[in-house]
Amino acid sequence: MTRKLLTFSLLLSAFMLGFANPTFASDSEEDKTSFIMHHVVDSHEWHFATIGQTHVTLPLPVIVYSADRGLEFFKSSDFQNHDTHKFGKEYAHEGYFIDDHDRLGRVDGASFIELSITKNVVMMFIVMFLVAYLALSAANYYKKNGAVAPKGAAAILEPIVIFVRDEIAQKSIGPKYKKFVPYLITLFLFVWFGNLLGLLPGAANLTGNIAVTMVLAVLTFIITNVNGNKEYWKHVFMTPGVPPLMLLIIVPVEIIGLFTKPFALMVRLFVAITAGHIVILGFIALAFIFESITIGVVSTVMVTFINIIELLVATIQAYVFTLFSAMYIGSAVAEHAHDDHH
């Protein structure tokens, strides 16, 4: 087993050194590691590989709304050098440009809202399509066959659905859990698929993007507070068992607490996934920094190892995100008074 793994790693590292060298074999250390951040953050184009001087990329739509010019559509390739595929202020197109940090800007400096289909948006659509396809074919199976033993997509999804329903929703929310099960299942599947697909080579770091985790956390925040019952709000504004004077301190803390919960959700997923990607890419970068085959072998072994851990992290983070969402919702709809909350 170990020997097989080593052989495989050696082959892989030789392969990677072979064809990735031209991209990263530049002189400064900065250039050798810049691909890490480039991979981790969102981008206006989807860059798959560079073979020699040829860039294999997928140009993506750039959509901009501005008060004075309305809705405008461009291609990301409009804003770059056709040979080097580099963005820059000098390649401005119809008043807009994408700078060398892949940020959209307007030449005259006026305000605008960007609604581009970036790499992560495409990735999001892929994840959503997969989740929807799986879920709909599973539902179709039940529609066709009635309540029988599952097969195919239903057999894949059913344990997950039952796990989310029984282990996450029912245990964390309590008797009113049924209403929130569909949201939690969708959340779990989206985050899980996003995490897993993000580990594929060339894929976008979707769930490690703060905009994505922010939207999900905000949705949980809205669901939590819209469903908050009398006791939940009483707990926030008239915390039981606290002397009136102390309320002056406790109430602001409680109000801040309302927002720290989704903030923690947002940051946890973003950091866990992004850090994993950075670690993997960092080990790959070692080979280019040291320009040594030995380091390449070692780092590839490490990359394989961390990739396996990342598979675990992908699942755990999806579980944790769903679990904490369920717990926040559970704290808002719980009937019994819980004074031991603090």
Binding site: I113, N120, V121, F125, V181, A211
Partner: peptide
């Protein structure tokens, strides 16, 4: 957070949620 990604993520996820609740999770559950 990029505004484009927030926009698409919000409406994409809400759309996914709506479709799946209506056509997948309700019949399945």
């Amino acid at each position: 957070p990029g505004s484009g990604l927030i926009f698409w993520q919000l409406f994409g996820f809400l759309g996914l949620l709506f479709i799946l609740i209506k056509f997948a999770w309700k019949p399945m559950l």
